[in-house]
Amino acid sequence: MKKRTRLVKYGEISKGVLTYFGDALMAGYSSIEGRRGGISPMMIMGYLEDLLKSIKTDQEKNRKLLRVLKNLEKQEILDLQEKDGKVIVYLKNKNHPKIVEYSIKNILEFKKKEKKWNGKWFLVFFDVPEIQRNKRDYLRKLLVRLGFYQYQKSVYLFPYECEKEVTLIKKIVEGAKYMKYIIAEKIEDETNAKAYFKLLS
């Protein structure tokens, strides 16, 4: 029996586009902001080549990508302009929470791949008031999405320095103002955390 091709979902394409812009900002490509130059959808499509390979025709790829770009424009993240009959994509707001989240995630992923662990742990903990539990729950989910390990209910850790990234989190999440950042030389029961970050020798 022939194996059925998995259809790529719009949500996956949207995450891919946000990752693209997060990567671009991390690399310092300021030309994607405002009206400084913008980029073509073809550049984004090239970045998403592996994700879109299950879509048979270029026409269908263009249609789906354009739909995602227009949706991100409605969210005030991107700005689409037409020049000489071609669509140019601009990053409308580099401080949008979703863009900042993907930028932070890309930076932390880079640190996990490229940096050598020095044995220290970088902890984030918070005590958000019960009346703001929705913000507290969102913050917990965000830290997990960013790659932090949940050490205790409101204590998360990362094996590499991340103070700047934590400061950015405080800017985009209202409940994050209750966050504290600590550097620990050693923690108890660190085996699970080391396994999570693939640091067991």
Rank of each mutant, 00 (worst) to 15 (best):
Asn93Leu: 08
Lys74Trp: 13
Asn95Met: 09
Leu72Gly: 00
Asn95Ile: 01
Tyr102Met: 13
Leu108Lys: 06
His96Ile: 05
Leu108Gly: 04
Glu101Cys: 02
Glu82Ile: 06
Asn95Glu: 12
Val89Trp: 14
Gly85Lys: 10
Leu66Phe: 09
Ile107Leu: 04
Val87Gln: 07
Lys86Cys: 06
Val100Tyr: 00
Tyr90Thr: 08
Val100Gln: 00
Asn71Ser: 12
Lys74Ile: 04
Leu66Val: 08
Gln81Met: 02
His96Gly: 04
Lys74Met: 12
Asn106Gln: 15
Glu101Asp: 13
Lys86Val: 11
Leu78Lys: 15
Lys94Cys: 00
Ile99Ser: 00
Lys98Phe: 11
Ile99Met: 08
Leu69Cys: 03
Glu101His: 10
Asp79Thr: 10
Asn106Asp: 11
Glu73Arg: 08
Glu82Cys: 03
Gln81Glu: 14
Val87Asp: 01
Lys74Pro: 03
Lys74Gly: 09
Gly85Trp: 12
Tyr102Gly: 01
Arg67Cys: 01
Asp79Lys: 15
Ile104Lys: 00
Leu78Val: 09
Leu66Trp: 04
Glu73Ala: 10
Lys70Pro: 10
Lys83Ala: 10
Ile104Trp: 00
Leu72Tyr: 10
Glu82Asn: 06
Ser103Cys: 06
Gln81Pro: 04
Tyr102Thr: 00
Gln75Leu: 15
Lys70Thr: 15
Asn106Ala: 03
Lys70Asp: 06
Val87Lys: 08
Arg67His: 12
Leu72His: 05
Lys105Cys: 04
Ser103Trp: 05
Val89Asn: 03
Leu78Cys: 12
Gly85Asn: 15
Gln81Ile: 14
Ser103Asp: 07
Val100Phe: 08
Glu73Thr: 13
Leu80His: 08
Asn95Lys: 15
Asn71Phe: 11
Lys86Leu: 14
Ser103Leu: 13
Val87Cys: 02
Leu72Glu: 13
Leu69Thr: 05
Leu80Ile: 15
Asn106Pro: 00
Asn95Tyr: 14
